[in-house]
Computed example of a mutant assay.
Amino acid sequence: MLSEINNPEFARIKTDIAAHSRLHGYYILGLVSIHAFRTDGTSQEIILKKLIDHFDDDPTEPDPDFVPDHGWTDYETTLDRARAHTIESLVGGRPIGHANETMSEQMAGELFDRFVAVCGTNPRFYIGLGIGDRKYAFMYGVLIVADDRAGILWIVESD
């Protein structure tokens, strides 16, 4: 029920981000329709689970006996916090043990703002989800869930 959205501005964002390759990592970028889930009344928790399953490329199988003490909706945050977190993640540099930044803070802010704009109306922001291959040390970024679409701008990297 998740289908990729062909959006020209999102394609430009992907190209702009790809021009700043990670020193020891990669990006997870996606924009998908969640219209069908909204239409059939699927809960936000279930939508988040489906999005995480869709975007997460970690080859490790989850522990079947693990019982979480919280839900995915507990990772919701404010626009300002998501913006600061994602900008820091896109910039990289000293906070993740790199001598050089991957991109400027200004460029990272502009990319974040453009990304939010393509994600649709009434966005909700989620960080700290641990999406990505667990052999890397850092898995940061934002998952945005709006009225009829969701987008991910995620950085997976080691120091």
Rank of each mutant, 00 (worst) to 15 (best):
L2K: 02
L2E: 10
E4F: 05
N6E: 14
P8M: 07
E9S: 01
F10D: 12
D16S: 06
A18Y: 11
A18R: 12
A19T: 05
A19R: 15
R22W: 07
H24K: 15
H24V: 13
Y26M: 09
G30R: 00
S33M: 09
S33I: 05
D40F: 15
G41K: 07
E45P: 10
E45Y: 06
I47G: 08
K50W: 06
K50A: 14
L51M: 13
I52G: 00
I52E: 02
D56A: 05
D57G: 02
D57T: 11
D57W: 08
P59E: 08
P59T: 08
T60F: 11
T60I: 11
E61N: 13
P64Q: 07
D65H: 12
D74G: 05
Y75H: 15
E76T: 03
E76C: 04
T77S: 14
T78W: 06
A84F: 02
T86D: 03
I87A: 08
E88Y: 12
E88G: 15
S89A: 15
V91F: 14
G92C: 11
G92M: 09
G92E: 02
G93R: 03
G93W: 01
G93D: 02
R94I: 12
I96N: 08
G97I: 13
H98E: 12
E101P: 05
M103W: 04
M103K: 09
M107H: 14
G109P: 00
G109Y: 05
G109S: 12
G109V: 00
E110Y: 00
F112R: 01
F112T: 01
R114C: 10
V116S: 05
V118F: 02
V118M: 11
C119R: 08
C119S: 13
G120M: 03
T121F: 02
N122E: 05
F125Y: 10
L129T: 10
I131R: 00
G132C: 03
G132S: 08
Y136F: 15
F138K: 03
F138A: 08
M139F: 02
M139V: 01
G141P: 12
V142H: 09
L143Y: 07
I144K: 04
I144R: 01
I144M: 04
R149H: 12
A150I: 06
A150T: 10
W154T: 05
